[in-house]
Design a protein around this nucleic acid. Structure first.
Lengths: 303, 303
DNA sequence: GCACCTCGTGAAAGTAAGTTTCATCCGTGG
DNA sequence: CCACGGATGAAACTTACTTTCACGAGGTGC
């Protein structure tokens, strides 16, 4: 039977549309009408049912099926999902976003959301890229072996410090965080060889944190600094320096992205430490999760 | 009150998978089996027929249909093309990374860093994609006009709550955060019409937070919930629901990505509020920045 | 402890979508 | 004027999708 020129089934993922328009002239009139609809708006075609599309092309379902076969598909459903896939792929409008910059005055919420998310995601990715695994390894090692872990941070970095403390505590490491400088100083004074102190400061210029870290170091503790600026003062009192890569510089942005970058670093260290002793960490996590269980309500679902 | 919180069916093209994983816990067991298959490999699911998928999930076609409806689709074909579209859009991560999953046991630091950063960045991006600007607008409006702002959160979400409080405070809004449930409850009891309460809970099942939010609502305050799961109990006591889109589900990952997603949402709200009154917010930020200036050291650089 | 709900579930009936078959139409060349 | 062959759509057919319904588990109130 006239198995009319079955064009090599383009099994490659892309190029279906191109493929179709390429062999458009070789199609029968009725099939061409279908093809034109498909090429004109693949996404729309994907949404239609075969009868619907046939009607739109002023033809019958049979012709649509024939068209599917002509372009190398098994049947209509297959064409449909391929079209949906391609339509989705080509819709990628990388509208110019304000990279690392301020939010334009007239921006609406949607723009604000897009800009912030973009910058936040960037900060996280770029931080990960420039993080030195070797340094991380040393820090993880130190934390894993430390007798005591002190974590310092002020303001926004204080939240990160606090978060880190809580995480380490949850896997059974003896970690402390002090919101108050005086308490932190006394704690630092009691550190010694085999202990570790981590100072977090976005700018790297927070005198309180630097001071405490210095104290800790003078007592023989290993010191770690987490900052955005690799040459900032805090690095002078640190044995190991980890840096974030948040671009924001203006106070106006309120160091938003930097927090996320700091947290990402904290997460990496945490997972690294936990991975050193899987069994123990897992056990500790299970126990702690269980502990808060009674403070969770069972899922009384909504209608 | 269930009617108050509507599950904004992510009408946009993107975020279906994320949307589904968010709803996962609120689905019935059989539907969850379907959901897991779909989330695990959307492209594959798109290729399957409904009977096929039902068999794979060890359930009936009826359940698959119910699942479609649960996630806001009209029927199976619609789900199918949406899945195909999303699968196509998703850029395959360079090296096979464990998306939303655990870190492989033998991983070295570099792998851990890459995986965490990838998941963190994704959570931020996907959260932004599915955030409903309209709801944000309402919340921003409410916060901007509120007499008093109470923010509740426990555990990891507590840090986020605290961060939010600090941010709002910095631009001159009267905001509070209470680490202690009892204090929070008394504060909530003193709220009234014109005030606003924000409850943050990743799982949406933290009874303490729900309880306090409920109290606030009963006093006439506008209530806002920030959670990863759009049908969790907390949404029942909230006038406005904002959702994050962190995929992690295992407690093992310690809800790491979710924090970042929550912070991104907080940042958006913060900037939104600040943008409402640029002049005043800027002034406040300048003044507060100046206040901590003397706690910064000048750049005595390293040798 | 019983009656009664409600909810999740799959079997089966029902409907719609997709596919095949086949008769018709129409132009072409004998 | 009559085959002939390809294009086409109506209709039969098959498969996929959707709805309905009854059963059973787990809870709730009497």
């Amino acid at each position: 039977m006239a198995k009319s020129a079955k064009i090599s089934a383009s099994h490659e993922t892309g190029g279906l549309i191109v493929h179709i328009s390429g062999l458009l002239p070789s199609l029968s009139p009725a099939e061409q009408r279908v093809a034109r609809l498909v090429v004109a708006d693949p996404a729309d075609a994907a949404r239609r049912t075969i009868t619907d599309l046939a009607t739109a092309a002023e033809t019958s379902e049979a012709t649509v099926i024939r068209f599917c076969r002509s372009v190398g598909m098994d049947g209509y459903p297959q064409l449909r999902i391929r079209l949906a896939a391609e339509a989705a792929r080509r819709v990628e409008p990388p509208d110019a976003r304000v990279v690392g910059g301020d939010i334009p005055p007239g921006a609406d919420l949607a723009q604000i959301i897009a800009t912030i998310a973009f910058n936040d995601a960037r900060a996280v990715e770029e931080t990960a890229e420039q993080l030195d695994p070797a340094v991380c390894e040393q820090v993880v090692e130190a934390i894993g072996n430390a007798g005591r872990i002190d974590i310092y941070g002020a303001g926004a970095s204080g939240f990160v410090a606090s978060d880190f403390q809580q995480k380490l505590h949850r896997i059974g490491r003896t970690a402390f965080y002090f919101p108050d400088v005086h308490t932190a100083l006394t704690s630092a004074a009691l550190l010694g060889r085999g202990d570790i102190a981590v100072g977090i400061s976005h700018t790297g210029t927070t005198s309180d944190v630097i001071e405490v870290l210095e104290q800790a170091r003078s007592r023989g503790a290993v010191t770690v600094a987490l900052t955005n600026f690799p040459r900032s003062p805090i690095t002078e009192v640190a044995d190991h320096v980890l840096t974030t890569a948040a671009r924001e510089t203006t106070y106006r942005s309120g160091a938003m992205a930097s927090r996320l970058a700091q947290l990402t670093v904290v997460d990496c260290l945490f997972v690294g430490v936990a991975a050193r002793n899987r069994a123990r960490a897992r056990k500790a996590l299970e126990v702690t999760a269980e502990a808060v269980q009674q403070h969770r309500v069972t899922n009384r679902r909504k209608a």
